[in-house]
Computed example of a mutant assay.
Amino acid sequence: MKDLFQFIENLFTDVLFAPFHALRALELENWWAANIFSWIFMLIGMVAFVYWMLQLKEHHQNGEEDKSITSHSFL
């Protein structure tokens, strides 16, 4: 059983986290390159937000939204 846990430890520290260790070393040289994942996730989030707002606007203009008071039982 101990070998199983050591395998899991080695898998994460030596294999799966290796790209992040490389980014940590890169951080001292170039801040922008070290934070590329953060910028990519922020870009994806902004695109998703704009898409969601456009969809809400389209449904609002088509009158598909149920704005009645009884639309939810708890109201």
Rank of each mutant, 00 (worst) to 15 (best):
D14W: 03
N30W: 06
M46R: 07
F17R: 01
N62S: 14
L75H: 10
I69C: 10
K2Q: 09
A25H: 09
A25L: 07
S38M: 06
F17Q: 03
H21F: 11
V47I: 15
F74C: 04
A22I: 02
F5N: 05
F49L: 15
L56S: 08
I40T: 02
H21D: 15
T70R: 12
D3S: 14
F74E: 03
S38Q: 11
S71D: 12
L26Q: 01
K67N: 15
E29L: 11
L75K: 06
F5A: 10
W39K: 15
D3K: 11
K67A: 09
K67G: 12
E65Q: 09
W52G: 05
T13H: 05
S38H: 09
F20Y: 08
A34R: 00
H59A: 06
F12D: 03
N62K: 10
N35T: 14
L11F: 13
L23T: 00
K57E: 09
E9S: 11
H21W: 12
A18E: 05
T13R: 04
L23V: 03
A22D: 03
K57A: 13
A22L: 11
L28S: 12
F17H: 02
K57Y: 08
L43K: 06
K67D: 15
L75W: 07
W52P: 02
H21N: 13
I36M: 10
I36G: 00
H21E: 05
A48E: 06
Q6T: 15
S73K: 11
F49V: 13
L75A: 15
M53P: 04
D66S: 04
E65G: 07
I8T: 01
T13D: 12
N62G: 08
S38C: 09
G45V: 02
D14C: 01
V47R: 01
G63K: 01
F37G: 14
I40A: 03
V50A: 00
N62V: 09
I36T: 05
L26N: 01
A18V: 09
L26P: 00
F41C: 10
Q6L: 13
L28H: 13
H72G: 11
I36V: 14
F12H: 02
F20P: 00
I36H: 04
M46V: 15
W31D: 13
N30G: 01
F20R: 07
M42E: 04
F7T: 13
A33G: 05
W39N: 06
F5Q: 10
V15E: 02
T70S: 04
Q55H: 12
L23H: 00
E9I: 12
E64Y: 07
Q61I: 04
G45K: 02
I8S: 10
M42C: 11
A22G: 08
Q61A: 13
A22R: 06
T13M: 10
H60P: 06
E64F: 09
S71E: 12
F41R: 01
F12L: 11
F41T: 08
M1N: 11
A34K: 00
F12V: 14
L75D: 08
